[in-house]
């Protein structure tokens, strides 16, 4: 039980169903379980609520429609009409990250977005896909992306490496931002919660703090999903339009 008080205990990945394929550990873990739960919740929200196809939407249908229009608007605002083919992907990214963050707010749950492996895999996929889209759309012209317009040619030796480094660091910043935010918030919650029982009657003070931090974490859960998604949109916009 001593381990349960460790604030990092909540991030432990425990295999629920051990699966090994050719020496690779593909066990169904608590992380995988919450991913499946998230997919089920998102599908229930987006598919079941719209089943009646009501002209005047009910609450759940309205929620589904609002998510749809929220992402559709984000997409057209950042990319424009050319962003239309990426809508299902952007929408899936947003919902997957948002539900990962939000499910993590439930007590005793697991936050799969607090793991670097998950966020980096997503960000790396986005990075590779965006780069491939850019090369497919613009061919060799894509590499002009690393020299901003109107820059004197003498500056090129300095600017091009900077631009390349900033481009290559995109997946790192994208994934670390999400993972670090989620991990820090959940660790903070756990640390504050650890004070409640030992303080006895004065435990009420950290409880008030917990309430405040929980509210903040809910905001951050949404905000980080939003940031992750809008940055993905901006990267796709760069790929589609270059400068």
């Amino acid at each position: 039980m001593a381990e349960a008080h460790n604030p990092l205990e909540q991030f432990h990945i425990k295999p629920l169903i051990p699966i090994h394929i050719g020496g690779i550990d593909a066990s169904f873990t608590n992380s995988a379980a919450f991913m499946v739960v998230a997919v089920l919740c998102i599908s229930a929200l987006m598919i079941l609520s719209v089943r009646s196809r009501a002209l005047v939407p009910g609450r759940w249908q309205l929620l589904a429609e609002l998510s749809y229009t929220f992402i559709a608007k984000m997409l057209t605002d950042t990319i424009g009409k050319e962003g239309r083919p990426y809508f299902p992907f952007i929408f899936s990214v947003f919902m997957f990250v948002l539900f990962g963050n939000m499910l993590g707010m439930l007590p005793y749950s697991f936050t799969y977005t607090s793991h670097l492996a998950v966020t980096f895999a997503l960000a790396a996929f986005i990075f590779v896909a965006v780069t491939l889209i850019a090369i497919a759309k613009h061919g060799m012209k894509f590499f002009s992306f690393f020299l901003p317009h109107g820059v004197p040619i003498a500056m090129a030796p300095l600017l091009i490496p900077i631009e390349i480094i900033s481009y290559l660091s995109r997946p790192v910043s994208l994934s670390v931002r999400l993972f670090a935010n989620m991990m820090a918030g959940h660790t903070l919650l756990k640390v504050v919660a650890g004070f409640v029982i030992p303080l006895g009657i004065f435990g009420a003070i950290p409880v008030l703090g917990l309430v405040a931090v929980t509210a903040l974490e809910l905001l951050i859960a949404f905000l980080q999903a939003y940031i992750f998604t809008i940055l993905t949109c901006i990267y796709i916009n760069d790929a589609v339009h270059l400068h």
Partner: peptide, 12 residues
Amino acid sequence: TFPSQIIWLAIS
């Protein structure tokens, strides 16, 4: 834990 996380991320 990385392989299982990434595999299940991809699947889901």
